[in-house]
């Protein structure tokens, strides 16, 4: 049976669960895993004090129960599968290099922060700074995919250098802040102040948006590369309306205050209907 950790109660303080990833639990018994020390607030406690542990460690690890104060799930993970049955705390999948994390519910802030590879899939919504770099980082996320079925908070994809942050719902304000390259897509639209200081990145908004003054309206077209990316989003399980695949988008070039080789693509349904 897959190694499964079920939270006994909500812990007394925030927990750092990064020591438990498939590669460290593989081949270990429930009793061994229960004895692993993790940090709860300023204390170190055994996993068994906070979780009921069952099964045997394989390439997969399952977490259940009230996980809202469990942080750093799968942080730094290099491979395997990690399933979170519920909502989790901050920094899920931060700096992971490979493997897959699926979260049934919502994720806290910094989900997939500075991701280097692999897939983080969030069936609910994500907090602020999904796929973002940590403060001061020039080049943040450098690969992999983050898929968020719901909404994302502020500054999704900030400082990212490569990879994809795909949001089925809305992205909060400040998406793609100082991004170097890579793609942030929000099918229900990105918030205000998107793409400030963006160098080469693509920000895709499924709803109308008024870009910052650093952006200049460039062209209205049917971008073939975007259609490919949107099809990939469908493969990843997001609902992409047909109109977006076939319709016209407005491309704004910017941020002209940086290299001006980035873009914001905006889907304008009205004009598509008219056309």
């Amino acid at each position: 049976m897959t190694l499964t950790l079920t939270a006994l109660t909500s812990p007394p303080a925030r927990v750092d669960l990064s020591p438990l990833v498939p590669e460290t639990t593989r081949g270990r018994s429930a009793i061994e895993v229960a004895g692993t020390a993790i940090r709860c607030g300023r204390d170190r406690v055994g996993v068994g004090e906070l979780f009921a542990v069952s099964g045997y460690g394989t390439d997969e690890l399952v977490l259940r129960g009230e996980l809202g104060r469990i942080d750093r799930i799968g942080a730094g993970m290099r491979g395997g599968r990690l399933r979170v049955e519920g909502s989790c705390g901050d920094h899920v999948g931060a700096r992971m290099t490979g493997g897959e994390i699926v979260i049934d519910g919502d994720a806290g802030a910094f989900a997939g922060a500075e991701l280097r590879g692999g897939l983080v899939r969030i069936e609910g919504s994500a907090g602020a700074s999904a796929g973002a770099g940590y403060p001061g980082t020039r080049a943040g996320m450098s690969g992999g995919e983050i898929v968020i079925a719901g909404d994302a908070g502020q500054e999704a994809g900030a400082a990212m250098r490569r990879g994809l942050v795909a949001i089925g719902g809305r992205a909060g304000d400040g998406a793609g802040l100082r991004m170097l390259a890579g793609t942030v897509i929000a099918l229900r639209g990105v918030g205000a102040e998107a793409g400030m200081g963006n160098k080469r990145g693509s920000i895709v908004s499924g709803r109308p948006l008024r870009p910052l003054p650093g952006y200049a309206r460039a062209v209205r077209y049917r971008p073939p590369a975007l259609a490919l990316q949107l099809r990939r989003l469908r493969e990843l399980g997001l609902e992409v309306p047909d109109a977006m695949l076939t319709g016209a988008w407005t491309r704004w070039a910017g941020d002209r205050l940086e290299l001006s080789r980035g873009e914001i693509l905006i889907f304008d349904e009205e004009e598509v209907a008219a056309g």
């Binding site: 940090r39 300023r42 104060r69 901050d90 806290g108 802030a109 910094f110 940590y134 403060p135």
Partner: peptide
């Protein structure tokens, strides 16, 4: 945040301070 035994930037919104 010094909880880990060394300094880290405190980034959490809900810190659970008691």
């Amino acid at each position: 945040d010094l909880a880990s035994g060394h300094p880290e930037l405190a980034l959490a919104v809900d810190e659970g301070v008691d």
